[in-house]
């Protein structure tokens, strides 16, 4: 399971069966250029693999006013 802290929504989402950043973005219906993804202080490109139990930040980049 991967825990996602979704910003700016402020939601915490638990995803099962996702092993890569791109899989997480697909589940959240986001394109790679629509959000930055980070693990602790490290930015991750969409091809990076994730390990079960990890927590990541997904921050949408589109400003809405």
């Amino acid at each position: 399971m991967i825990t996602v802290n979704l910003e700016p929504d402020g939601e915490v989402i638990e995803l099962h069966g996702t092993k890569t950043v791109i899989a997480v973005l697909n589940r959240l219906k986001l394109r790679p250029s629509m959000a930055i993804v980070a693990r602790n202080d490290e930015l991750l490109t969409s091809d990076r693999r994730l390990t079960p139990g990890e927590t990541i930040l997904v921050r949408k980049v589109t400003s809405a006013g």
Binding site: S33, I36, L43, R59, V61, T62, S63
Partner: peptide, 8 residues
């Protein structure tokens, strides 16, 4: 620069 680029 795009929003994605400034966010990074």
């Amino acid at each position: 620069l795009t929003e994605f680029e400034t966010a990074n």
